[in-house]
Write a protein that binds this DNA or RNA. Structure first.
Lengths: 129, 129
DNA sequence: CTGTTGATTAGAAGTTCATCGAAACAGCCG
DNA sequence: CGGCTGTTTCGATGAACTTCTAATCAACAG
């Protein structure tokens, strides 16, 4: 409900009439898009969660039981469980109980979306640079 | 200095001798790698900084002067300056003063590295899934 | 030199958030 | 039932965050 919502298409112009900046070549991230994407990056902006993701992905079959994850850290099971919950609530992983053990696997779509956003072919971050 | 440093190659085995998890198909992220990468993601895990990056990238020529960035937000110039500093210290952007104005541009290499890490072709996150 | 505009720094307030563990609980199996 | 795996709840500690005001630095115009 402020100037954030308005697309800024033309270059800024100073008092003397000289433009200080180039015009936009593409539509930048909107405020709402940014607000939606930031928590995804925040979820992986932690060394433990980054390694958890990596451990899950590196297991054959793409899934891992929690016992293997807790064994890889010097953290207590509740702490691991907490980090897994953060990743799951962000939509980055999913889980299922099979008998005694609980298995986690990665949701590739969400990670791919994040990767594409900051990748060289991104329409909003690569621009024409 | 603990079990984190040891690569975990074989599957965990429970007391009865039955494996609960599949073995590793690739080498997961090391503790030091994760510690090095997490701050990069933390730098972009903020809606304002995400939009700043996008605004810089979307400008023709790939660079933008600060005046154009402050105009796009309802924040004071010092606040914008702070967020730009965070991005710069993470290595994601660079800047240069040219006369009256200061220009910022994106460092594509760092973003590409982050993108590749979480992308579908990543050796540590895509695994064999 | 002086005044103005653009941008950064210094400092601080305030809130929020995060990490982690101890203890208790829930689902499964023999 | 008892033992095991994993999760939740709760809490305490502490750190980190965003954002502002005020002051400072840099470049330019007159």
């Amino acid at each position: 409900m402020s100037k954030q919502e308005l697309p800024i298409i033309d270059a800024a112009v100073d008092v003397s009439g000289a433009a200080c900046c180039a015009p936009l070549a593409c539509e930048p991230l909107s405020e709402s898009e940014a607000a939606e994407l930031a928590p995804l990056f925040k979820a992986i902006a932690d060394p433990v969660r980054l390694r958890l993701l990596s451990l899950i992905a590196c297991h054959e079959g793409g899934e891992t039981c929690v016992c293997d994850l807790t064994a890889a850290f010097d953290l207590t099971p509740p702490t691991i469980s907490h980090h897994l919950k953060v990743l799951k609530q962000a939509g980055l992983i999913d889980s299922e109980r099979r008998g005694t053990w609980v298995y986690y696997w990665i949701n590739p779509a969400v990670l791919a979306r994040m990767s594409a956003l900051i990748g060289p072919a991104s329409p909003v971050l690569a621009g024409t640079a």
